[in-house]
């Protein structure tokens, strides 16, 4: 079967949202995203506008996956951070275990500030995410009973 699901509780979700909100202010970012390494968006904060955040998350994960493979080809274990600098908007991606912290910033901030502030937030995200993974096992039992209630009709109704 596929891997066991990652289950994010409301408590962990709020803590992650708080870390992102604070980071966004501290580094004067336009927006901050937390993304799973496999491309699943977890949460975000900031000026999103009509940005397709799901696609953005998937592409960020694809980007890191590609650069990590390139790193291994040249004998590095991993690039812990990926930077894309544009004329007006830039992106800084910090790799934190199985998640990615993605900061979108413009002329209101600097790469140095973003790197500095993201480092501290990365530790916090890492700590919460460790708890998420640890608790996913325990929550899995609850989730199982929830999913056990799903009927074939429920699933079929998604396609009607």
């Amino acid at each position: 079967m596929a891997e066991a699901p990652v289950i994010i509780s409301e408590v962990h979700y709020e803590r992650l949202k708080y870390i992102l909100a604070r980071l966004c202010v501290e580094c004067a970012a336009r927006a901050v995203f937390l993304v799973d390494r496999d491309g699943q968006p977890i949460t975000h904060h900031g000026e999103i506008g009509d940005m397709d955040t799901t696609s953005f998350s998937s592409l960020a994960a694809g980007n890191v996956a590609a650069t990590s493979s390139m790193a291994r080809l040249i004998g590095e274990d991993e690039f812990p951070a990926v930077v894309h600098e544009g004329e007006k908007e830039s992106i800084f991606i910090s790799v934190i275990g199985r998640s990615l912290l993605v900061v979108v910033f413009d002329q209101r901030s600097t790469l140095g500030l973003v790197k500095l502030r993201t480092k501290k937030a990365s530790f916090e995200v890492s700590s919460v995410f460790d708890e998420v993974i640890r608790d996913s096992g325990a929550l899995h039992g609850t989730a199982n009973s929830f999913f056990a209630e799903i009927t074939d009709e429920d699933i079929d109704s998604l396609f009607s």
Binding site: I8, E10, E14, L139
Partner: peptide
């Protein structure tokens, strides 16, 4: 892997 978010009440799967 499947991501289940209880706060936003979402299930995300990858095919």
């Amino acid at each position: 892997m499947t991501f289940i978010n209880y706060a936003s009440r979402e299930i995300n799967c990858k095919i």
